[in-house]
């Protein structure tokens, strides 16, 4: 029997954090899928990492910097092209509180 890592409540919370509404069926589906994914990742837990330093980056690079010099930004039409709602030059979003 598979162990459930995530409850329905937790899935609902994750949906709330992502501002996504889920139907009853979708919730069931996501509970299954999330738990499958977590089961799969459980395999990693078996590896002994006691002596291993955490890896923060796979590239052998550090200190990639940019000089503090300005270059042109996007034209306003470009900038607002993907906004579903706008007002004058602002993007329009729902009330936040």
């Amino acid at each position: 029997m598979k162990r459930r890592h995530l409850s329905k409540k937790e899935v609902e919370h994750i949906a709330w954090l992502a501002h996504i509404e889920l139907s009853k069926e979708e919730k069931e589906l996501f509970i299954e899928q999330f738990n499958d994914i977590l089961d799969y990742f459980k395999k990693i837990d078996k590896v002994d990492t006691e002596e291993v330093q955490p890896t923060y980056h796979v590239l052998d690079l550090m200190n990639v910097y940019r000089e503090d010099k300005a270059s042109p930004s996007l034209p306003i039409e470009e900038a607002l092209k993907n906004a579903p709602k706008k007002e004058k030059k602002f993007l329009k979003a729902p009330r936040i509180v």
């Binding site: 900038a79 007002e87 030059k89 602002f90 993007l91 329009k92 979003a93 729902p94 009330r95 936040i96 509180v97």
Partner: peptide, 11 residues
């Protein structure tokens, strides 16, 4: 903030 009908955003 708690009475505004919507929010305008400037990035």
């Amino acid at each position: 903030i708690d009475q505004s009908p919507y929010t305008l955003v400037d990035y």
